[in-house]
Write a protein that binds this DNA or RNA. Structure first.
Length: 646
RNA sequence: GCCGGGUUAGCUCAGUUGGCAGAGCACUUCUCUUGUAAAGAAGAUGUCGUCGGUUCGAUUCCGACACCCGGCUCCA
């Protein structure tokens, strides 16, 4: 029999018998690989393992170690989910079920009078395990569109997919591919799939959710089951552990446990009250922001929380964002709205008096509280709320001054974010969408290249998001990575050619001509409330000493040491250190436990030796206890730590 | 806004197949006076989210609303 030769990713060649499949190749390379193999890549195209290899092909065997392998594994698991649901719930029909980050989902429409709830997941999972234990082979097939419509005649969503010519589920317009496994479960699918259900051992169904068909809220709502799937038991376990870790850090839980803030029902959805400790932290964040802006050449302004509708007509907010604004209040001379943004107010401030090019750039800063009517279902702790405060500034500059201003801004943003313990940033540059934009193209080009140059100048890598800009100008968004690797969009630098026009803003240039300034909207923290939530999760509630609401707890060993302990507190407070005193009405261990659960950075214990020697026992958060530390030494260390924001 | 789940003491949660509800922690008082993550005893604590309906009787069943959770959609 003739042989064929294929090349492997490492460049080596392998002889195989004519008609050999990718699975044969894997086995030829090694039993371990054969077992781990999920799919193959043949001449750059993903294929099932049972694909017969053409002579001369470049082949690589894909396992669960790669993203592609995992994706396939998850996709196959989604098929098994659909198979289980359709078997368990006659009359249910299925829509789509793709792999996603960490897992997969599948959307279903349940028969009338039936709904899936999380209680059903256990039974579905059990059925899936049966299917997996049966080790059913996934078998690919192709039919014409008409035949496919016949096969899926009971499943309207599938028929809709078949009818859409450019659907990614369909391989070519005249052949529809599908996969079959078990006793007749069949699903439309481009593939490839793992060879058999036995490969799908490490999965877990997570939750049930609603999802619109094709993601459009005008379409019917389906029921979506989310699951996670991995190549090994360990990976699955690690993933579930990471989810638990995120839950442990949940800012809503920590805010409650650490007595930082609350969301009383009577206040209404998406509105918080800040308790003294949360307010202390927030105040420190705000003070820091103010200090940095003062140093950075910003002028401070204030503006009211409500404004006449006329203002928001001028700014265009009522035309474009009325749905996101609180409904109007009827008042004597018209309608008033809660402000959803500070920019119109800042434009009014700029507009007073005549501005010369010599005055620019003008940088107006405000910790401005805005109110947005977020839809009820979108609220989420501090991350998405209806009243929040932006570290908002509007910079008015000349076209010529734009590039320099942006460059300075980038530096400024990064230095502020770094103070909050972030050191990994992602930059996104959003450019013009020709379909919806105002201002002339020349202006856009100038502004976009100013943004781009500024990024280049600082050697910052960035992703270009073509057409992602707001209608009024291009922007740079900055994301940070937190302590557990999650990404948060915090800062934004947006250019605006629209508002200066709408408010008729001007300056006089050096030739005595009236010119339009360019406006830059920029927020570094974004929303103070949201950043507070992010920091709470980032630090897992253990705020660094400079931000901690209580920095030091002082505990006398016994009542007789109370006077000395209070002297210690007096000295600390004289240094501006935030202290708490716990009298000796409980065992020392108990009191230490109490303050440790509150994540106080330093516990000082004051006993007999200390009283005699002017020392303290220092029990720091996260490191070893140190006895007999002279108080002055401790104060010195703490001062350094606070000043350097360690 | 839409789909699903939920709301019981300050917190975390159990419970009542319809007969005025319970634990742990926290709190208060007393005793103990402690050297680095939970001393002991006693005590107080609830419109069982709100409003309506069914019922002799509703925290429990039904409905509306509010708020929360998981998603979808949205996010200037």
């Amino acid at each position: 029999m003739a042989n064929i030769s294929v090349s492997l990713p490492d460049g080596t060649q392998r002889e195989l018998k004519q008609g050999a499949t990718a699975a044969d190749l894997a086995l030829d390379i090694g039993a371990g690989l054969a077992k781990a193999a999920l799919i193959a890549e043949v001449n750059g195209e993903e294929a099932d393992l049972n694909k017969v290899l053409p002579d001369g092909a470049a082949v690589s065997i894909v396992t669960g170690d790669s993203d592609k392998g995992l994706e396939t594994l998850r996709h196959s698991t989604a098929h098994v989910l659909a198979q289980a649901v359709l078997e368990l719930y006659p009359g249910a029909t299925f829509a789509i079920g793709p792999p996603i980050e960490h897992g997969f989902y599948y959307d279903f429409a349940m028969p009338e009078d039936e709904t899936l709830t999380e209680e059903n997941l256990e039974g579905i999972e059990e059925k899936m395990r049966e299917i997996i234990t049966a080790d059913q082979a996934f078998i690919r097939g192709e039919v014409s569109a008409n035949e496919a419509l016949e096969i899926f005649s009971d499943h309207p969503f599938k028929c809709e997919i078949i009818k859409v010519a450019d659907s990614s589920e369909v391989q070519t317009p005249d052949a529809i591919s599908f996969y079959r496994n078990g006793d007749g479960f069949i699903d439309l699918c481009r593939g490839p799939h793992v060879p058999s259900t036995g490969k799908l051992q490490h999965f877990k169904l997570m939750n049930v959710a609603g999802a619109y068909w094709r993601g459009n809220e005008k379409n019917p709502m389906l029921q979506r089951i989310y699951g996670t799937a991995w190549a090994s038991k360990k990976q699955l376990k690690d993933h579930l552990f990471r989810l638990e870790e995120a839950a442990r850090r949940d800012h809503r839980k920590l805010a409650n446990e650490l007595d930082l803030l609350s969301f009383p029902d009577e206040l209404g959805g998406g509105l918080a009250v800040w308790h003294p400790k949360g307010s202390q932290v927030r105040k420190l964040m705000e003070d820091f922001s103010r200090q940095r802006h003062e140093d950075g050449g910003y002028e401070f302004v204030y503006s009211p929380h409500i404004a006449n509708a006329e203002l928001f007509r001028t700014s265009g907010h009522l035309d474009f964002y009325a749905e996101g604004m609180y409904p109007p209040m009827e008042m004597d001379n018209g309608e008033y709205y809660l402000k959803p943004m500070n920019c119109p107010m800042h434009c009014l401030i700029y507009r007073t008096g005549t501005k010369s090019y010599r005055d620019l750039p003008i940088r107006l800063f405000e910790l401005g509280t805005v109110y947005r009517y977020e839809r009820a279902g979108t609220l989420h702790g501090l991350m998405r709320i209806r009243g929040f405060t932006q570290d908002d500034a509007h910079i008015f500059t000349t076209e010529e001054g734009l590039a320099e201003e942006i460059a300075g801004l980038l530096e400024f943003v990064i230095s502020v974010l770094e103070a909050f313990g972030f050191n990994e940033f992602t930059f996104n540059l959003s450019t013009r969408d020709p379909q919806k934009s105002v201002g002339d193209v020349q202006m856009w080009d100038l502004a976009t290249s100013a943004l781009e140059e500024a990024l280049d100048k600082h050697g910052l890598l960035f992703d270009r998001k073509e057409g992602d800009a707001a209608f009024y100008g291009p922007k740079i968004d900055i994301d940070v990575s937190d302590a557990i690797g999650r990404s948060w969009q915090l800062s934004t630098i947006q250019l605006d050619f629209n508002l200066p026009e709408r408010f008729s803003l001007r300056y006089i240039n050096s030739s005595g001509e009236r010119k339009r300034p360019v406006m830059i909207h920029r927020a570094l923290m974004g929303s103070i409330e949201r950043l507070f939530g992010i920091l709470l999760e980032h630090y897992a509630g253990a705020f660094p000493t400079w931000l901690a609401p209580i920095q030091v707890a002082v505990l006398p060993v016994a009542n007789e040491h109370e006077k000395y302990a209070k002297d210690v507190i007096g000295k600390l407070e004289a240094e501006g250190i935030r202290c708490e005193f716990l009298r000796a009405d409980n065992p020392l261990g108990k009191r230490i436990r109490d303050v440790k659960t509150q994540k106080v950075p330093y516990v000082l214990v004051a006993g007999g030796d200390d009283t005699a020697n002017g020392t303290v026992g220092v029990n720091p958060r996260g490191s070893e206890v140190e006895r007999d530390v002279p108080l002055s030494e401790f104060i010195g260390r703490l001062r350094t730590e606070v000043e350097e924001r360690l």
